[in-house]
């Protein structure tokens, strides 16, 4: 797996600055690192959203790899078409094989919600592509509306904190688990704030033929109401609180990539939540019960994940 120096020096950058994302935005890091980690020719297909809008305002582009945007809910289907075209034209001799890697991405809205069917179909069909979801937990591009990825009790503009409602009342979907249900060779969960874990997973995924999926937690200072300088730390704390464990699932086998608990570094989820303005109502009088509820949910999920990983490690 590549060192940071190797990532920075092996090839010219394929995702460059000059784009219009906000200061402290989490996703540019993901795509810069992802493209640095892939040595082969790569085609990127992006869903409508912050990343697409900020990186491809005509006549400018941040993409030094071929980049295709079609619509919001169909980056997986569109990418599957690019991949099918490549294999078809290589097979018929119209194109020389060059080991092109295919990457589709979407935000959490474009992946957990409106693009889920397109993604599910593409994974089931077995296309040789890597789908990356940058998950900042709401429709940030349109102004912080709740999505299926918004955590419970977060404040958003369509599930606002009011006098009687404490924000979003539903739990976040477990997207990685849904993807595992597709029996694909590789599924992983990571963060924008851990370059090594992220690039390791991208390298691993691109070495595998078939459909791969990585969901990456990325902070949005605007939507999370956080300080721009905390962006990297915030996703690291999401891991340390066990709200967002780093793990991967290879051929159905779960494996933890980091265990803050075993290292004695597990922090209460409240420590992570209190840095974010979207949860500030939980720290007012009366919020204790809601915080306890979130902690119980995180603990249960963490214990379930540990048990699964332990079960699979014993099988080997």
């Amino acid at each position: 797996m590549a060192t940071l120096k190797e990532l920075a020096t092996t090839q010219a950058e394929k995702f460059v600055g000059g784009h219009t994302s906000c200061a402290g935005c989490g996703y540019p890091n993901i795509f810069r690192l992802t493209l640095a980690a892939i040595k082969d020719p790569v085609v990127v297909v992006g869903a409508t959203g912050c990343c697409e809008v900020n990186t491809s305002i005509f006549p400018y582009t941040s993409w030094k790899a071929p980049f295709l945007h079609n619509a919001f809910e169909n980056s997986a289907a569109t990418c599957s078409g690019v991949e099918a075209a490549y294999y078809s034209m290589v097979k018929s001799g119209k194109l020389a094989a060059n080991n092109t890697r295919f990457i589709a991405f979407g935000g959490d809205g474009g992946t957990y919600d409106i693009g889920l069917q397109s993604l599910s179909g593409a994974l089931e069909r077995g296309h040789d592509m890597l789908y990356i979801c940058y998950d900042n937990g709401a429709y940030m591009n349109t102004g912080i509306q709740r999505s299926g990825a918004t955590p419970r009790y977060a404040n958003t503009t369509t599930a606002p904190v009011g006098k009687v409602v404490p924000g979003k009342m539903q739990k976040k979907k477990d997207l990685a688990k849904i993807m595992v249900g597709h029996n694909v060779p590789y599924v992983a969960q990571t963060i924008a704030g851990n370059w090594k874990d992220l690039t390791n997973k991208v390298e691993k995924a691109t070495a595998i033929r078939g459909p791969k999926f990585i969901v990456v937690l990325a902070a949005c200072p605007l939507g999370w109401q956080t300080k721009t300088q905390d962006t990297v730390r915030l996703t690291q704390l999401a891991v340390e609180s066990c709200f967002w464990p780093l793990y991967e699932v290879e051929n159905g086998k779960y494996k933890l990539n980091d265990n803050p608990e075993a290292k004695g570094k597990k922090i209460p989820v409240a420590d992570w939540l209190k840095m974010q303005g979207r949860f500030k109502h939980l720290f007012k009088p009366g919020g204790e019960k809601l915080l306890a509820e979130i902690q119980a949910e995180v603990d249960k999920d963490w214990n379930d994940l540990k048990a699964l990983c332990e079960f699979h490690s014993k099988q080997e």
Binding site: L68, E73, A77, G81, V82, A84, Q117, S118, G121, A122
Partner: peptide, 17 residues
């Protein structure tokens, strides 16, 4: 594909390739 939306989306991807 799993829908006509994806059918045309995939065609767009293929044709753009």
């Amino acid at each position: 594909v799993e829908s006509e939306h994806s059918a045309l989306s995939a065609c767009v991807g293929s044709a753009a390739a």
